[in-house]
Design a protein around this nucleic acid. Structure first.
Length: 478
DNA sequence: CGCCCCTCCTGTAGAGGAGGGGCGGTGCGCTACT
């Protein structure tokens, strides 16, 4: 009985939606793609099978912080045979881990680590019980133009005696599902697809003439309504200026983006989690692996570059099932910047020419500063896959696809019919029933969803950066 | 591509406008240097 195993290893008496179906298929040796909302116990889908299958379970994870969370969680359940293969390990630790790799029950690793020759070789030598792609939409979302090692995951999947493959995600379009299936070499996988609709997230939008009006609206709105919430903006500098402006108005807010030190990012996320920060002003760096149930608002100061990003970002609200509001702000022409930012770092025609001109030493382009590291890695990957003519075509196609994705998002912004229905249809699903206060176009009364701020909080003392730094350092020592 | 910031120009005083330059998202692992 699966329930008995669940009770024995994890102390739970019953499964949550989808878990049992997914686990049964995996135990029968079948590949599985499972789309489950975050917070619905996705990780149990591989945690329990790890105790019922022979051989270690390999979990491919996109973020080091995510790996660390999962490792900590398993250790809390008393599991000691866990390892995270990543750059936090010293050379000695890594050698040890690789040598005893077959003895672990859970092996976490990034795609990049898995592509290292000595890791690949070691994996070939042991028999895995299960291979898991966590946040599997990353294969499609990041593989083609950002982290190409995601497209190479098939290289670590054995051709003979293949273990079952499990792909986990919260949101995936039909195209993304196809990419997952293809790049993980899946064989007629079992699909468990939960609805992408989140009825408790109400969809608001606001139009503005001037870009500054959006900022003024946010400042006003955040002072009169309750968080906790996330404000997504397009640039790192804007997260800083906006969070400062909120801080000056007595709102406990902080900026979050990839330019910050890892330690600061972790600290800010932690403060938000425990409720010491009410608002996070962030780039799209913020979100994955943030398990906070009571996020009441997500505000997009800028339209996301595609619908999938929008769904992921608003999906961080209301995980506790209580009402939440997602507000999308738009000023004329916003889409032009989105188009620029998503295509700016793609390799260009002249990069292909220089790549070819450098012959056996394409790395010279990097040393010469002709190309960014990301763009080089992407270009290098594709040049090894296909002819330069094909790469050129592919890059042009990628650019067109990015423009198309921005346009699709713009259509959601400009639509005058039900936003929810459009979003759900975009993911190839149908809307089962109407939601009260569904979206801006169906009619939405903010006051009916979230109560206005009852009490004006004591304005926090405005700190200089030295005081803020000191506070951060002191808190992290605790 | 569009915004912001800085400098320069004008024509002899001060400020406003033109024009140039920089900047702009997402993460892994690794290396060289502080």
């Amino acid at each position: 009985m699966l329930e008995q195993a669940l009770q024995k290893h994890f102390g739970y008496t019953s499964f949550r939606t989808g878990q049992k179906e997914v686990i049964e298929q995996l135990l029968a040796g079948r590949d599985v793609i499972a789309l489950l909302p975050t917070g619905m116990g996705k990780s149990m889908c591989y945690q329990l099978p790890a105790y019922l299958l022979d051989g270690p379970v390999l979990i491919v994870s996109p973020l080091l912080s995510l790996m660390q969370d999962q490792v900590d969680q398993l250790k809390q359940f008393g599991e000691k045979r866990v390892v995270a293969l990543n750059s936090f390990l010293t050379a000695e630790q890594k050698r040890y881990a690789l040598h005893f790799l077959h003895q672990y029950r859970f092996i976490f690793a990034s795609p990049e680590m898995l592509m290292q020759p000595q890791v690949k070789e070691r994996l070939r030598a042991i028999r895995l019980g299960l291979i898991v792609a966590d946040e599997a939409h990353c294969i499609s979302q990041w593989g083609f133009d950002f982290r190409p090692d995601y497209l190479r995951l098939g290289e670590i999947i054995p051709k003979h005696n293949k273990p079952p493959i499990l792909a986990l995600s919260a949101t995936a379009t039909q195209t993304v599902l196809q990419d997952i299936e293809r790049y993980l070499h899946m064989q007629s996988p079992f699909y468990f697809l939960h609805s992408v609709n989140r009825p408790n997230i109400h969809l608001a939008k606001r139009f503005f003439q001037q870009k500054d009006d959006k900022i003024n609206w946010i400042l006003e709105h955040v002072q009169t309504t309750d968080g906790p919430g996330i404000i997504y903006t397009q640039s790192r500098s804007k997260t800083e200026t906006l969070s400062m402006a909120l801080l000056e108005r007595g709102i406990a807010a902080a900026a979050y983006h990839a330019g910050k030190e890892a330690e600061d990012r972790q600290f800010i996320q932690q403060q938000f989690l425990v409720g010491k920060l009410e608002w996070i002003v962030a780039t799209n760096a913020f979100g994955m692996g943030v398990h906070k149930g009571d996020i009441r608002q997500v505000i997009h100061e800028f339209m996301p570059a595609n619908i999938a990003n929008y769904m992921q970002e608003i999906g961080r609200a209301g995980r506790d099932g209580q009402p939440a509001v997602a507000t999308l702000l738009y000023a004329d022409g916003d889409e032009q910047f989105s188009q620029f930012i998503v295509t700016e770092d793609l390799p260009k025609m002249q990069h292909i020419e220089h790549y070819l001109a450098n012959g056996d030493h394409p790395m010279r382009m990097l040393d010469a500063g002709e190309i960014s590291e990301t763009a080089f890695r992407v270009l290098h990957y594709w040049m090894q896959q296909e002819s330069s003519e094909a790469v050129q075509k592919r890059l042009q196609q990628m650019e067109m696809d990015k423009y198309k994705a921005v346009h699709e998002m713009l259509q959601i912004v400009q639509a005058t019919d039900c936003m929810r229905e459009r979003l759900v249809n975009y993911f190839g699903q149908q809307l089962a029933e109407k939601t009260p206060n569904c979206c801006q176009n169906c009619g939405l009364v903010f006051e009916e969803i979230l109560s206005a701020k009852q009490t004006v909080e004591e304005p926090e003392k405005i700190l200089t950066w030295q005081e803020r730094l000191q506070r951060i350092l002191l808190s992290s020592l605790r």
